[in-house]
Nucleic acid binder design. Structure first.
Length: 871
RNA sequence: GCCGGGAUGGCGGAACUGGUAGACGCGCCAGACUCAAAAUCUGGUAUCCGAAAGGAUGUGCGGGUUCGAUUCCCGCUCCCGGUACCA
């Protein structure tokens, strides 16, 4: 390209954007090569599930990442920004069932389409590192790593409960259970226990928890959620002796964090699957019926916790370890077999859930903890859950929490009835799925059902892609070509047909990007150069599960000597959702027909308030619903492609970054997109007008008038502001607002003489540089037009000139009794007395202070004076 | 239920460490240009009183701390995310 390209008069993104993208591709501008002499920066966004088309959440996520990556490049860092596909998952199976398309074909064509969309948005990816998790060259390494974990005893097989659809004969995801019934069959769901695989994440619980304290570049909210999810608690594991227990059972074990309330325990509660409950059910049809009912509860915690708490007494009691009293044992629908021992000790006076249950079934409520004034708490309206001194506890009376805990724990330990223990809320990671379109678990069983991890040389265990899909269950089970195999000794083996949780793939892809082309090893030396990820950007909905699994997996890889860092993601930026108003009509029976915003006309009043909406289809009114997360079910998605086609990638990128800060939810507005486009058009016009007048003179030798000096100060203040917003605050909306203000100032300040033209050149150069990460295509073209030879993508980020920032006078706010009464101008170096004097001298201030005694004057240097007078 | 987050003009948002509430943009109103429209440009725009200067009110609700609170504390309401098989 020529040194100074002539600039067309009109801004035509549809023409320049593909040309600039081609230029980047031809020049391999964003290819990342390891270079030990340069400081690296690994910028990563959570990779997309290839659902078909990009949605606004993707556009937002990847624009944030691209802005950061391009900014770091302008800082001179060696930047890696890769992209790939989280390609396994449930939607591909649904598409197969609905449209009879093989999941592999559906997924790969979605990837091809979405890759084109990402390229059209101009993201600075190193496409040579692209990976898809459904590629055997990718998943063979997680299969290999799984067999290493098995050898180290870090994965095990145990039974766990799943949602079973008795009609479709398949396991259902929680999402597929609607009001207790299967989403396709409509049949009531059953709980079923089946053997499944678990990596031992609880063995890493302490490290995962402690490390959070040092992860100061993660949002505090995410760290708090992870801490609470891990849920470390110190307590006592107590074994209660059973009276009249069924054969083979002589005690009931529970864990409590409140042993100080042991004397207030008035009953025990066990899960419906607990052996005590099952034993009782054998003799009592009523108990059996209750348990059968519980068997149709979903396995989802959100559902269980919102259920009405119900239970039944069992024909068995336990002996209180201190008093010897017999306490009743109940079976309750809210006790989970998968959490702890499946049994809890109930202290209704001091636990709200126990209290409600006791009230409902008329069980005794005995307060054993005093309020702060030493009296027994009133537990007639609810439990007293605070800590306090013990009462009604015999020889343990009058002790505070710690002393009571110790005394009661020691007494029970001496009797061999209890141990102090640390317990976690975190459960081991259940990775088995009974689905087809996921990575096979690389395990073979011999004739006796013994486990044989698949041998390295036979990996990958490839998922057969050419399949016939019948019914809704995974076709793998009925494929002898897949299931029938041989063991090392030549005997027949049966392959595991369960597959991995898709979180398994997304728990290590960030490291594989460093060496995605290596066919011989999971990782190589390049991983040590790039890892850890310097900034990881993605939705807040991943705060716990994905981000905790990835941290665990990374530590397991570190322990296996595969990576050297302790944590995978140095900094985390969590992005808010993209929302849009909804439009619908009631169609009877509480059902709603949703209308896409693109198919609705909105009417406004003379203030622009929305008053009504009509469907294009029939011109009839539709109801305006709340603003919600864009989704298929609410039909309120705005297709980014239509906007890219109409306005270009830069406008979509600019609007997305301008509409809200990254971590807040964003309400989509088409008209505001128009505003972003308008801004780029006017910037283009301003540059066009400037460069068609010929090259601007150098600024150095010129003297500036007051307006030009003020404009120049504004230019450099904007550099300071935008640099801080982009690098420290990650507030791209205020960065863009500051640049808009500068552009307004530039276009309103005449550039008639040499000095004016020189300042305008500096201003336009600055604007283009500051916006370069956000609108790189238009920036590339304007930068050349402004006479620069080097690529904008590699240009250095501007640095403010300290001399240009100096101010002579500052504005001071004057308050009287905390209310603003004036703004006065004072010299920048005015001392407190001078500020006070200038404030008092103002006419309006005098009006409010006249005849009143001044009690106090507060001067905040450089900002404000507050005069406090007697009212 | 539990854990985490949020609420500011007609709308998206700004106010970063307790110091001018409403930057910037959208929308709307008025004007310029035009035969007209589009595009573009200029001015206005929290609410109420006022010709203006200026004043009063105002950051989900109820209290509190402070010379001063959108910001800190206590108690609520509503909305959103997660809740272990959606990703």
């Amino acid at each position: 390209m020529a040194m100074q390209d002539s600039l067309s008069e009109r801004y035509e993104p549809g023409v320049i954007e593909p040309a600039v993208q081609q230029y980047w591709e031809d020049g391999r501008v964003f290819k990342a090569d390891e270079d030990p002499d340069r400081e690296k920066f690994y910028c990563l966004c959570m990779f997309p599930y290839p659902s078909g088309r990009l949605h606004m959440g993707h556009v937002r996520n990847y624009t944030i990442g691209d802005v950061i990556a391009r900014y770091q490049r302008m800082q001179g860092r060696n930047v890696l920004q890769p992209m790939g596909w989280d390609a396994f998952g449930l939607p591909a199976e649904n598409a197969a069932i609905e449209n009879n398309v093989p999941p592999a074909e559906w997924t790969r064509s979605n990837i091809a389409y979405m890759r084109g969309q990402l390229k059209r948005l101009g993201f600075a990816y190193d496409w040579d590192r692209e990976l898809a998790t459904c590629d055997p060259a990718y998943y063979r390494w997680e299969q290999w790593f799984f067999t290493r974990l098995y050898e180290k005893g870090l994965v095990y097989r145990a039974t766990a409960v799943v949602n079973w659809d008795p009609v479709d004969q398949t396991v259902l995801a929680n999402e597929q259970v609607i009001d207790g019934c299967g989403w396709r069959s409509g049949a009531p769901v059953e709980r079923r226990e089946i053997p499944q695989w678990f990596p031992r994440i609880t063995a890493s619980a302490d490290e995962l928890l402690e490390e959070l304290d040092r992860m100061d570049e993660w949002p505090e909210a995410v760290r708090t959620m992870q801490r609470n999810w891990i849920g470390r608690s110190e307590g006592l594991s107590i074994r209660f002796a059973l009276n009249d227990g069924p054969a083979g059972l002589d005690e009931l074990e529970v864990f409590t964090t409140r042993p100080d309330t042991l004397l207030g325990a008035t009953y025990m509660a066990v899960a419906p699957e607990h052996p005590l409950a099952l034993a009782a059910a054998a003799d009592d049809p009523a108990v059996a019926a209750f348990i059968e009912e519980c068997r149709h509860q979903s396995t989802s915690e959100a559902v269980i916790e919102k259920l009405e708490k119900r239970g039944m007494a069992l024909p068995v009691t336990v002996r209180h370890p201190l008093t010897g009293d017999a306490l009743p044992v109940w079976v309750a629908n809210f006790v989970l077999m998968s959490y702890g021992t499946g049994a809890v000790m109930s202290v209704p006076a001091h636990d709200q859930r126990d209290w409600e249950f006791a009230r409902k079934y008329d069980l005794p409520i005995v307060p054993v903890i005093a309020t702060s004034d030493g009296t027994a708490p009133d537990v007639s309206a609810g439990a007293f859950t605070e800590r306090g001194a013990t009462i009604n506890s015999g020889r343990f009376d009058g002790l505070d929490f710690t002393a009571a805990f110790d005394a009661i724990a020691s007494a029970l330990e001496a009797d061999g009835r209890a141990e102090r223990r640390v317990q976690y809320r975190l459960r081991d990671w259940l990775v088995s799925r009974q689905r087809y379109w996921v990575c096979p678990i690389p395990v073979v069983y011999d004739a006796d059902g013994n486990v044989q991890p698949e041998r390295d040389e036979r990996l990958p265990v490839a998922l057969p892609e050419d399949i016939a899909w019948e019914g809704v269950a995974s076709p793998l089970r009925s494929m002898p070509a897949f299931t029938e195999t041989t063991l090392p000794d030549g005997s027949a083996g049966r392959r595991e047909t369960d597959t991995f949780d898709t979180f398994f793939e997304s728990s290590w892809y960030f490291a594989r990007f460093c060496c995605a082309d290596n066919p011989d090893a999971m990782f190589d030396a390049r991983v040590d150069y790039w890892m850890p990820v310097d900034i990881y950007i993605g939705g807040i909905e991943h705060a716990v599960l994905h981000l905790l699994y990835a941290r665990f997996f990374h530590k397991a890889m570190r322990d296996a000597g595969l990576v050297s860092s302790d944590e995978p993601f140095k900094r985390l930026l969590t992005q808010g959702m993209v929302c849009k108003e909804t439009y619908f009509r009631e169609t009877g029976g509480g059902r709603k027909q949703y209308f896409n915003p693109a198919d609705v006309d909105v009417e406004t009043d003379d203030k622009g308030r929305v008053i009504a909406a009509r469907a294009h289809l029939d011109g009839q009114p539709v109801t305006i619903g709340p603003v919600e997360k864009m989704s298929k079910s609410k039909n309120n998605g705005v297709d980014p492609q239509a906007l890219i086609d109409r306005y270009g990638a830069d406008t979509v990128r600019l609007y997305t970054m301008f509409a809200a800060p990254p971590d807040q939810s964003l309400e989509w507005s088409d008209s505001a997109v128009e505003g972003a486009f308008r801004f780029l058009k006017s910037l283009w016009r301003l540059v066009h007008e400037h460069v068609t007048a010929g090259p601007a003179p150098a600024l150095a030798a010129l003297t500036l008038d007051a307006d030009q000096k003020a404009l120049r100060r504004h230019i450099h203040e904007t550099i300071v502001k935008v640099s801080d917003d982009v690098s420290r605050r990650y507030k791209f909306n205020t960065a863009i607002a500051a640049v808009m203000e500068l552009v307004n100032h530039l276009s309103r300040t005449p550039a008639a003489n040499d000095a004016g033209r020189a300042v305008r050149q500096e201003g336009l150069d600055t604007v283009v540089l500051l916006l370069a990460p956000i609108v790189p295509h238009v920036g590339h073209v304007l930068w050349r037009a402004l006479g620069h030879r080097e690529d904008l993508a590699g240009a250095p980020w501007p640095v403010a000139d300290e001399a240009a920032l100096v101010r002579d006078a500052i504005e001071l706010v004057v308050q009287v009794n905390g209310r603003k009464r004036a703004v006065v101008s004072v010299p920048a170096d005015a001392d407190k007395a001078a500020c006070e004097q200038a404030a008092m001298a103002d006419d309006n201030v005098a009006r409010f202070t006249a005849g009143k005694a001044v009690r106090k004057v507060i001067v905040v240097p450089g900002k404000l004076v507050n005069i406090v007078v007697q009212e």
